[in-house]
Computed example of a mutant assay.
Amino acid sequence: MSWLGRRRADLAAGIGLLTRLPVGWLSAGGAFDLGRSVWTWPLVGMALGATGGLAVDGLAAMGLARSLAAAWAVALLMLLTGGLHEDGLADMADGFGGGRDRARKLAIMRDSRIGSYGAMALGMALLIRVIAAAAAPHPAVAMAIAGGLGRAAMGGLCRAMKPARTDGLAAALPRIPRPALAACLLAPVAAALLLLPAGRALQACVAAAVVAALLGRLAQRQVGGLTGDVLGATAVCVDCCVLSLAGIAGPPG
Protein backbone atom coordinates (compact mmCIF):
# COMPACT_ATOMS: atom_id res chain seq x y z
CA MET A 1 0.00 0.00 0.00
CA SER A 2 1.29 3.47 -0.86
CA TRP A 3 2.01 6.15 1.73
CA LEU A 4 -1.13 8.03 0.68
CA GLY A 5 -3.16 4.83 0.81
CA ARG A 6 -2.05 4.17 4.39
CA ARG A 7 -2.94 7.70 5.43
CA ARG A 8 -6.38 7.33 3.87
CA ALA A 9 -6.85 4.01 5.64
CA ASP A 10 -5.79 5.60 8.94
CA LEU A 11 -8.25 8.43 8.48
CA ALA A 12 -11.02 5.99 7.62
CA ALA A 13 -10.19 3.94 10.73
CA GLY A 14 -10.23 7.02 12.96
CA ILE A 15 -13.49 8.37 11.58
CA GLY A 16 -15.07 4.92 11.66
CA LEU A 17 -14.05 4.37 15.28
CA LEU A 18 -15.07 7.76 16.65
CA THR A 19 -18.14 8.64 14.59
CA ARG A 20 -21.14 7.16 12.81
CA LEU A 21 -20.09 8.68 9.50
CA PRO A 22 -19.62 6.38 6.47
CA VAL A 23 -15.96 5.79 5.57
CA GLY A 24 -16.03 3.13 2.87
CA TRP A 25 -15.40 5.70 0.15
CA LEU A 26 -12.29 6.91 1.99
CA SER A 27 -10.56 3.62 2.73
CA ALA A 28 -10.38 2.51 -0.92
CA GLY A 29 -10.01 -1.08 0.20
CA GLY A 30 -6.98 -0.40 2.42
CA ALA A 31 -6.43 -2.43 5.59
CA PHE A 32 -7.40 -0.66 8.80
CA ASP A 33 -4.85 -0.39 11.62
CA LEU A 34 -6.41 1.12 14.74
CA GLY A 35 -3.09 1.54 16.47
CA ARG A 36 -1.54 3.39 13.56
CA SER A 37 -4.70 5.51 13.13
CA VAL A 38 -4.27 7.17 16.53
CA TRP A 39 -2.77 10.25 14.88
CA THR A 40 -6.16 10.93 13.29
CA TRP A 41 -8.14 10.85 16.54
CA PRO A 42 -7.49 14.48 17.56
CA LEU A 43 -8.17 15.62 13.99
CA VAL A 44 -11.56 13.92 14.11
CA GLY A 45 -12.21 15.40 17.55
CA MET A 46 -11.29 18.90 16.40
CA ALA A 47 -13.48 18.62 13.31
CA LEU A 48 -16.43 17.47 15.41
CA GLY A 49 -15.88 20.21 17.98
CA ALA A 50 -15.62 22.91 15.32
CA THR A 51 -18.86 21.64 13.80
CA GLY A 52 -20.59 21.91 17.17
CA GLY A 53 -19.19 25.38 17.80
CA LEU A 54 -20.30 26.64 14.41
CA ALA A 55 -23.75 25.24 15.16
CA VAL A 56 -23.85 27.26 18.39
CA ASP A 57 -23.00 30.50 16.58
CA GLY A 58 -25.29 29.73 13.65
CA LEU A 59 -28.32 28.93 15.78
CA ALA A 60 -27.66 31.93 18.04
CA ALA A 61 -27.51 34.15 14.94
CA MET A 62 -30.95 32.83 14.01
CA GLY A 63 -32.33 34.13 17.29
CA LEU A 64 -32.08 31.14 19.64
CA ALA A 65 -30.84 31.76 23.15
CA ARG A 66 -27.20 30.71 23.40
CA SER A 67 -27.99 28.08 26.00
CA LEU A 68 -30.57 26.50 23.73
CA ALA A 69 -28.24 26.77 20.73
CA ALA A 70 -25.52 25.02 22.75
CA ALA A 71 -27.92 22.24 23.74
CA TRP A 72 -28.77 21.59 20.09
CA ALA A 73 -25.08 21.66 19.20
CA VAL A 74 -24.22 19.05 21.82
CA ALA A 75 -27.15 16.96 20.57
CA LEU A 76 -25.71 17.20 17.05
CA LEU A 77 -22.34 15.96 18.26
CA MET A 78 -23.96 13.02 20.02
CA LEU A 79 -25.78 12.19 16.80
CA LEU A 80 -22.53 12.27 14.81
CA THR A 81 -20.68 10.10 17.31
CA GLY A 82 -23.56 7.83 18.26
CA GLY A 83 -23.07 8.86 21.90
CA LEU A 84 -19.99 6.62 21.97
CA HIS A 85 -18.05 8.52 24.61
CA GLU A 86 -21.11 9.38 26.69
CA ASP A 87 -21.98 5.68 26.83
CA GLY A 88 -18.47 4.97 28.08
CA LEU A 89 -18.78 7.59 30.82
CA ALA A 90 -22.09 6.17 32.01
CA ASP A 91 -20.78 2.59 32.01
CA MET A 92 -17.62 3.54 33.87
CA ALA A 93 -19.56 5.45 36.52
CA ASP A 94 -21.92 2.53 37.04
CA GLY A 95 -19.11 0.01 37.22
CA PHE A 96 -16.79 1.94 39.48
CA GLY A 97 -19.62 3.16 41.68
CA GLY A 98 -21.65 -0.05 41.96
CA GLY A 99 -19.19 -2.93 41.77
CA ARG A 100 -17.77 -4.60 44.86
CA ASP A 101 -14.70 -6.09 43.21
CA ARG A 102 -12.84 -5.99 39.91
CA ALA A 103 -14.83 -8.78 38.26
CA ARG A 104 -18.16 -7.26 39.26
CA LYS A 105 -17.11 -3.79 38.12
CA LEU A 106 -16.13 -5.10 34.68
CA ALA A 107 -19.39 -7.04 34.44
CA ILE A 108 -21.45 -3.94 35.25
CA MET A 109 -19.53 -1.95 32.65
CA ARG A 110 -20.50 -4.56 30.06
CA ASP A 111 -24.21 -4.25 30.95
CA SER A 112 -26.07 -2.10 28.42
CA ARG A 113 -28.48 -0.88 31.08
CA ILE A 114 -27.76 2.44 32.78
CA GLY A 115 -27.83 2.77 36.56
CA SER A 116 -28.08 5.67 38.95
CA TYR A 117 -24.34 6.44 38.95
CA GLY A 118 -24.24 6.43 35.17
CA ALA A 119 -27.32 8.61 34.88
CA MET A 120 -25.90 11.17 37.31
CA ALA A 121 -22.51 11.27 35.58
CA LEU A 122 -24.05 11.57 32.14
CA GLY A 123 -26.51 14.26 33.22
CA MET A 124 -23.81 16.36 34.85
CA ALA A 125 -21.47 16.01 31.87
CA LEU A 126 -24.13 17.13 29.41
CA LEU A 127 -25.11 20.04 31.66
CA ILE A 128 -21.50 21.21 31.97
CA ARG A 129 -20.86 20.95 28.23
CA VAL A 130 -23.99 22.86 27.28
CA ILE A 131 -23.41 25.67 29.78
CA ALA A 132 -19.69 25.92 28.97
CA ALA A 133 -20.31 25.94 25.21
CA ALA A 134 -22.89 28.68 25.63
CA ALA A 135 -20.49 30.75 27.76
CA ALA A 136 -17.46 30.38 25.48
CA PRO A 137 -16.66 33.61 23.62
CA HIS A 138 -15.64 31.59 20.55
CA PRO A 139 -17.40 28.22 20.76
CA ALA A 140 -15.99 26.83 17.50
CA VAL A 141 -12.43 27.32 18.77
CA ALA A 142 -13.19 26.15 22.31
CA MET A 143 -15.06 23.03 21.23
CA ALA A 144 -12.47 22.17 18.59
CA ILE A 145 -9.60 22.36 21.10
CA ALA A 146 -11.59 20.44 23.70
CA GLY A 147 -12.46 17.72 21.19
CA GLY A 148 -8.88 17.42 20.01
CA LEU A 149 -7.35 17.26 23.49
CA GLY A 150 -9.96 14.72 24.61
CA ARG A 151 -9.07 12.32 21.79
CA ALA A 152 -5.35 12.91 22.31
CA ALA A 153 -5.81 11.94 25.96
CA MET A 154 -7.38 8.69 24.76
CA GLY A 155 -4.32 7.97 22.65
CA GLY A 156 -1.98 8.69 25.52
CA LEU A 157 -3.81 6.28 27.83
CA CYS A 158 -3.79 3.57 25.15
CA ARG A 159 -0.01 3.80 24.99
CA ALA A 160 0.58 4.10 28.74
CA MET A 161 -1.81 1.45 30.11
CA LYS A 162 -2.49 -2.23 29.64
CA PRO A 163 -6.03 -3.46 28.94
CA ALA A 164 -8.11 -4.59 31.89
CA ARG A 165 -9.58 -7.55 30.00
CA THR A 166 -8.53 -9.79 27.13
CA ASP A 167 -11.32 -8.63 24.82
CA GLY A 168 -12.98 -5.32 24.03
CA LEU A 169 -11.68 -2.15 22.39
CA ALA A 170 -8.65 -1.59 24.64
CA ALA A 171 -7.46 -5.16 24.10
CA ALA A 172 -8.10 -4.99 20.36
CA LEU A 173 -5.84 -1.97 19.88
CA PRO A 174 -2.39 -3.01 18.70
CA ARG A 175 0.76 -1.38 20.00
CA ILE A 176 0.65 2.28 19.00
CA PRO A 177 3.69 3.36 16.95
CA ARG A 178 5.64 6.20 18.52
CA PRO A 179 5.41 8.52 15.47
CA ALA A 180 1.62 8.11 15.43
CA LEU A 181 1.42 8.83 19.15
CA ALA A 182 3.65 11.89 18.82
CA ALA A 183 1.42 13.27 16.06
CA CYS A 184 -1.66 12.47 18.17
CA LEU A 185 -0.36 14.45 21.14
CA LEU A 186 1.23 17.33 19.26
CA ALA A 187 -1.62 18.17 16.86
CA PRO A 188 -4.12 19.51 19.43
CA VAL A 189 -1.35 21.18 21.44
CA ALA A 190 -0.21 23.03 18.32
CA ALA A 191 -3.80 23.96 17.51
CA ALA A 192 -4.32 25.28 21.05
CA LEU A 193 -1.16 27.40 20.87
CA LEU A 194 -2.20 28.72 17.47
CA LEU A 195 -5.82 29.53 18.28
CA LEU A 196 -5.73 30.50 21.97
CA PRO A 197 -3.71 32.95 24.05
CA ALA A 198 -0.57 31.22 25.32
CA GLY A 199 -1.72 31.16 28.94
CA ARG A 200 -5.13 29.72 28.14
CA ALA A 201 -3.61 27.16 25.76
CA LEU A 202 -1.25 25.99 28.50
CA GLN A 203 -4.13 25.71 30.96
CA ALA A 204 -6.15 23.62 28.52
CA CYS A 205 -3.27 21.24 27.79
CA VAL A 206 -2.37 20.82 31.47
CA ALA A 207 -6.03 20.23 32.36
CA ALA A 208 -6.31 17.53 29.70
CA ALA A 209 -3.15 15.81 30.91
CA VAL A 210 -4.23 15.94 34.56
CA VAL A 211 -7.70 14.56 33.82
CA ALA A 212 -6.25 11.72 31.75
CA ALA A 213 -3.70 10.87 34.44
CA LEU A 214 -6.31 10.88 37.22
CA LEU A 215 -8.76 8.71 35.28
CA GLY A 216 -5.98 6.35 34.26
CA ARG A 217 -4.89 5.96 37.87
CA LEU A 218 -8.49 5.47 38.97
CA ALA A 219 -9.04 2.79 36.31
CA GLN A 220 -5.85 1.01 37.35
CA ARG A 221 -7.01 0.87 40.96
CA GLN A 222 -10.60 -0.05 40.16
CA VAL A 223 -10.27 -2.65 37.38
CA GLY A 224 -6.55 -3.13 36.87
CA GLY A 225 -6.20 -1.45 33.50
CA LEU A 226 -7.83 0.24 30.55
CA THR A 227 -11.19 -0.40 28.88
CA GLY A 228 -13.04 1.24 26.03
CA ASP A 229 -15.44 2.75 28.55
CA VAL A 230 -12.56 4.45 30.36
CA LEU A 231 -11.37 5.87 27.04
CA GLY A 232 -14.82 7.29 26.32
CA ALA A 233 -15.11 8.72 29.81
CA THR A 234 -11.72 10.36 29.41
CA ALA A 235 -12.79 12.12 26.23
CA VAL A 236 -15.95 13.47 27.89
CA CYS A 237 -14.23 14.58 31.10
CA VAL A 238 -11.44 16.36 29.21
CA ASP A 239 -14.08 18.01 27.05
CA CYS A 240 -15.93 19.27 30.13
CA CYS A 241 -12.80 20.67 31.79
CA VAL A 242 -11.36 22.37 28.71
CA LEU A 243 -14.73 23.89 27.78
CA SER A 244 -15.13 25.14 31.34
CA LEU A 245 -11.77 26.91 31.10
CA ALA A 246 -12.84 28.46 27.79
CA GLY A 247 -15.98 29.85 29.40
CA ILE A 248 -14.12 31.71 32.16
CA ALA A 249 -14.07 34.86 30.05
CA GLY A 250 -17.87 34.84 29.99
CA PRO A 251 -20.32 35.00 27.10
CA PRO A 252 -19.66 37.40 24.25
CA GLY A 253 -21.27 40.80 24.47
Rank of each mutant, 00 (worst) to 15 (best):
Ala235Met: 08
Asp33Arg: 10
Val189Asp: 08
Leu26Cys: 06
Leu181His: 00
Leu79Glu: 01
Cys237Ala: 15
Val130Asp: 03
Gly97Lys: 11
Leu68Phe: 13
Val242Met: 13
Met1Ala: 13
Val230Leu: 08
Ala73Lys: 08
Leu157Ile: 02
Gly225Lys: 14
Arg6Cys: 01
Ala153Leu: 00
Thr227Asn: 10
Cys237Thr: 12
Ala213Ser: 11
Ala182Ile: 13
Leu126Asn: 04
Ala204His: 08
Pro251Arg: 15
Ala55Ser: 11
Leu80Glu: 01
Gly63Pro: 12
Ser244Asn: 10
Gly247Ile: 11
Arg113Ala: 09
Val206Gly: 09
Arg104Glu: 10
Gly30Tyr: 07
Ala71Met: 12
Gly156Arg: 01
Phe32Val: 06
Arg200Val: 04
Val238Asp: 04
Val211Phe: 02
Arg159Ile: 00
Arg100Ile: 02
Ser27Arg: 15
Met161Lys: 15
Gly199Gln: 12
Gly150Lys: 01
Pro251Met: 15
Ala170Tyr: 01
Ala144Thr: 06
Pro188Met: 09
Leu243Val: 04
Ala146Phe: 02
Ala208Pro: 12
Thr40Cys: 12
Pro42Lys: 10
Leu157Cys: 07
Thr234His: 04
His138Glu: 15
His138Asp: 14
Ala121Glu: 04
Asp91Glu: 09
Cys241Met: 15
Pro251Tyr: 14
Ala198His: 14
Ala153Lys: 00
Ala73Ser: 10
Cys158His: 00
Leu48Trp: 02
Gly14Asn: 12
Ala50Trp: 15
Ala133Pro: 05
Ala73Leu: 08
Leu76His: 06
Ala28Thr: 08
Gly118Val: 02
Arg7Ile: 08
Leu54Trp: 13
Ala134Ile: 08
Ala201Gln: 13
Ala9Phe: 02
Ala69Glu: 12
Leu185Val: 02
Met92Trp: 05
Gly53Ser: 07
Arg36Ser: 05
Ala60Asp: 12
Arg175Tyr: 03
Lys162Asp: 10
Ala233Gln: 05
Ala171Val: 03
Leu21Asp: 00
Trp41Ala: 04
Leu68Val: 14
Gly247Pro: 10
Gly224Val: 04
His138Leu: 14
Leu54Val: 06
Asp10Ile: 05
Gln222Asp: 03
Leu122His: 08
Pro42Ile: 01
Ala55Tyr: 10
Gly156Ala: 04
Ala191Ile: 04
Thr234Met: 05
Gly216Ala: 09
Ala201Glu: 14
His85Phe: 01
Leu194Ile: 05
Gly5Ile: 04
Ala160Glu: 05
Leu243Cys: 04
